[in-house]
Amino acid sequence: MQRLDHADGTRSWVVAVPGTRAAGLTGDVPTDNGTNLALEGGVPDVMTRAVVAAMGEAGIGADEPVALVGHSQGGMVATSVAAATVGTYAVRLVVTAGSPDVPAVPPPGAATLTLRHREDAVTILDGKVGERGGPRTLSVVRDLAATGGPLRPSFTEAHAVAGYVRTGALVDDALGDLPADDPVRRALTDVLGEQRVSATTTQVTVAVGPPPDPVAPATPTVARPLDAAPAAPLGAQPPWPPAPDVPWSPAATGRAWSVLSPSTSSTTARS
């Protein structure tokens, strides 16, 4: 997560979510295939709730522009978080790389930038084949075999995040073809600004444990410095999908989880 402090005194945020890290369906790693299945099925998942909680702990203001970015599973989580926080945070942009279009409905009010490789099978797990696009969306598609990538990329090569980092260089060219008032260009400007910014980067770790005891459920909390005010219990977060009068508990996801103490670093650069 990056906090961007702009020269004019305003602030914006970039929240990056990692992709799948574990092949199992359960365990102590939340970025697993269990989370993938939950996202595909449209049911509550650990990572969406953890990212929303981390954003709250970071102190993101309701009017501070936010970009949510993710590769593979991370892109699905970013889209899910954008939908879950409508009216809470000013999410201007969702950037996905190598992700299926899940959730299928674009986040209300946010522009979308998608990066895809033609050879990447993961991007069609949503059942859609062919080009993507639509209002408030910029789709950048790269043919690896024709642009210096492997002539016959393996599944791993086609989906690797390193390849998508190189594909990201094509975004500037794609933006150059868009009018100044294009939603994606405006969203990027809202978040990144046009002048010098100071970036503070915080890495947040999510820990997952076994399901809580149904008799005496443990309420996970976000760890804070010892001299800070007590953190609100994560169980107080609103349910997703929204359900009136139904309180959420850790058991809703089948696993208890918590956001651990973050590590932080700062840099200054020109946007």
Rank of each mutant, 00 (worst) to 15 (best):
P150L: 05
V140G: 10
P244M: 07
L178V: 03
S249M: 14
A160Q: 02
V197N: 13
Q237E: 15
V206W: 01
P212Y: 02
G168K: 10
V222A: 06
L178K: 02
R166V: 07
G130M: 09
L170K: 14
R136P: 07
P135W: 01
F155C: 04
T221W: 00
G130N: 10
D227E: 13
P183D: 03
P225I: 03
W248K: 00
P238F: 02
A160N: 04
P212F: 01
V208R: 05
V208P: 15
R166F: 10
P217A: 06
T167F: 03
L175Y: 04
A199D: 05
T201M: 13
Q237P: 13
P212W: 01
W240A: 15
V141S: 07
T167G: 08
R185D: 03
T137W: 12
P241C: 10
P135T: 05
G133R: 08
G163Q: 03
P211E: 04
T156Q: 04
G133Q: 06
K128N: 14
H159D: 09
G168M: 12
R152W: 12
W240I: 06
A232H: 14
L144K: 09
A158E: 04
L125C: 08
V197R: 13
P238S: 02
P210D: 05
E157I: 00
D190M: 10
V161L: 12
T167A: 15
P183H: 00
A146N: 10
V246W: 11
L125P: 12
T167Q: 10
P217T: 01
P214M: 01
G163W: 00
G133L: 08
L170W: 12
R132P: 08
V222W: 00
V129R: 09
V208E: 08
E194H: 13
A232D: 12
T137R: 15
S249I: 12
I124Q: 10
